[in-house]
Write a protein that binds this DNA or RNA. Sequence first.
RNA 1: GCCGGGAUGGUGGAAUUGGCAGACACGCAGGACUUAAAAUCCUGUGCCCUUUAAAGGCGUGCGGGUUCAAUUCCCGCUCCCGGCACCA
Length: 807
Amino acid sequence: MSKMDSKKIESKWQEKWASADLLYKAEDFSKKQKKYVLVEFPYPSGEGLHIGHAFTMTGADVYARYQRMSGFNVLFPMGWDAFGLPTENYAIKTGIHPSKATDQNTATFKNQMKQLAFSFDWTREVNTTDSNYYKWTQWIFIKLFEKGLAYKEEKPINWCPSCKTGLANEEVVDGKCERCGAVATKKNLSQWIVKITDYADRLISGLEKTNFIEKVKAAQINWIDRSEGAEVDFEIKGFDKKLKVYTTRPDTLWGATFMVVAPEHWLVSEVISNPEIKQYVEESKKKSELERSELQKEKTGVFSGFYAINPVNNKEIPIWISDFVLSTYGTGAIMAVPAHDQRDYDFAKKFGLEIIPVIKSKTEWNYDDGAYTDVNTGEMINSDFLTGMVPKDAIAKIIKWLGEKGVGVKAVNYHLRDWIFSRQHYWGEPIPMVHCEKCGWVPVKEENLPIELPKVEKYEPTDTGESPLANIEEWVNTTCPKCGGSAKRETDTMPNWAGSDWYFLRYLDPDNDKSFADMKKLEYWMPVDVYVGGDEHNTLHLLYSRFIYQFLWDLGVVPKSVPEPYYRRMSHGVILGPDSQRMSKSRGNVIIPDEVAEKHGVDVVRTYLMFMGPFDGTMAWNENTLVGVKRFIERFYCFVSENKDDFGQKDSDKISSLVNKTIKNVSEDIAKFGYNTAIAKLMEFLNGVDKAEKSEISKESVKKIVLLTSVFMPYTAEELWDILGQEFSVHSQMWPKFDENSLKNEAKEIAVQINGKVRGKVNVTEGMTEDQVKELAISDNNVKKYMEGNEIKKFIYVPGRIVTIVV
RNA sequence: GCCGGGAUGGUGGAAUUGGCAGACACGCAGGACUUAAAAUCCUGUGCCCUUUAAAGGCGUGCGGGUUCAAUUCCCGCUCCCGGCACCA
């Protein structure tokens, strides 16, 4: 058996492909139908491409290749999300400018990607750190500002003491910094904030126009977490201001026995002179978000001295202060109904407050066990005009009543918070704003964009929360774009997400200097047909970029007919180390794609990655299975190369149906990202054909199968195409079609069951009638044996599948 | 607690609308080639009973149900993974 020399094959075609680099070019306005296949662009770290990148991108590449060969005008671009902390840290350590490090890293990444034979259209490469790219990132920010969706405010924000920067709510996971894992603290800082909450409803409803899988939709809906209820005003006894609360259960108003406000609530400042209250408030302010939620079992609190008046019955109820009420949600104040809310219940038990049930449970309910919270069953009691109703109906009635009395309105709340948009770091897009004593915050004039990052001596972030840019006086000091007076530039930079929010639009027109992309091109290419990415971005990048896109849609700068940027989202899976643990340097279980490719060949790596398991699964690296794939590729190579002169003119019937079945199944599987089964079917083909006489197989059919393999193993397929004497390149061929007739005529062996047990087999073809099959089945010797002396009670024939006889 | 997804041989995983469970691959066992090993090739491989074979029994997390037929549908659970969570 002639061994294949994968090294030689790789370098040979690598060279040939480089000189024919328009192989994968996407053509604007082509008459072919477009297909925009997008895979998340990477952060070009100094470590190079890791196996997760290789996996994800191979998956996207196979899909793009399949669509391209199927006749679509495929856009499959790549770029660099290059602003970020690792590069900045590298600069701090070495003094080398981040842009230089970025250049080196992107060059390495690009090389690796070419080595792995990803079919990107490199003529559309983008880089978020290019000033002619981030010009438009800045432009988008100015538009947000102009539309009142970006504002600067001093307020306590999440702060990572390790990264020394502010964090968006989405970047705090379990109370820790999403990037470095340090416990997030609170810090009072003046920050740019983007009002993503204005789009909360649309971010939910827009999902209906997409074809995202359930889990992605659910993650976003959960994160936004819309709730409906009412805002109710309570008078405060002996005080002229009212206390506004948000509740989802206004039906339980008669059961409200006390009120609770957050320690940050305005009312607290009225009584802060009380030493007990002062101490409580200070202690809870010291706690981080993490500590507050960790301590959630034991409730704490202090009585404010105030009483509120319940608008439904004029009862006076005490107002307490407790940090289980969040200042950031609703109004920062609640009415407590301990009989029907577990948290209120716990608080009441701890401080000996009254518990008044206003809903009678259908079944016996013991209030010693906790609160009764069901809205859908039970019956209102002790509630005046609501008495007798089901709680969920009572809600509508009481909201109407509150409105008539002018003490409450229907209200909606979200878990989603506004987006903290300032970062106190060097390596990011400068926020294009200028502060003027006279005019306040003024955006830079559009013609003066981009505001380029100035050179600095020191890249270190500071503990004070000031960006390193603040030290460059000649850059900071400028003139006001409005009045021309002296003014200062904003020194904070944008979060990473700013550049990646809209990059998929720039691919469509990467060199445009009049706008971020030409409308005609946008209209041709948008929306993204399939977006391949990771679940870790479901509530970060994916949510942010949908928001920014919706905003651009409102501006009218993206096509009216495309309200959502991504039609379909495909989640990719995760590759674990050989020990089934997440790969990490400290565990020493990291698999480096280059090394595996060096040892086994690129096609083996690609095909193995796709064969490991379902594309969206979590799978452990296993060198044994990889060797199995290697065997397959080598066997396939030998099958074609060694028999190239022995293949016949025409397939035998058996081979013909195998070939057609393979084309059909492989195509269908690839179209739904079922790569593991697609490869299994190619293996089946080889197993089936390996033992057959080679003259039974036509060269035409072999060519078709080579085309099928080309999406997984582009090098081997190109070599085999050449060996078969075909013209370069295999990758610009059309995807093979299968012959429906050859599948129809195929005789199929199906099982004959008697009383649920398989007792025989019969060969049927598609056109056969039930009677014909019946005759065939009962004439089978084995079947006859089992039917002896029995009468057929029922005969069932499921065409092409099974015969069942009940006796 | 709420939401989403799972549980199939020794292992990774396959199974259109309910239709022969275990495709494909790994591993394992036996054999061929070899002085030997590696590589390669061939054969077997869900479990149990059985000397072997035939025949049978049991099998898709657990308990019920519908059906000629259930991994698939329905009811009730257990456990695992992911998201959210003192969100009023």
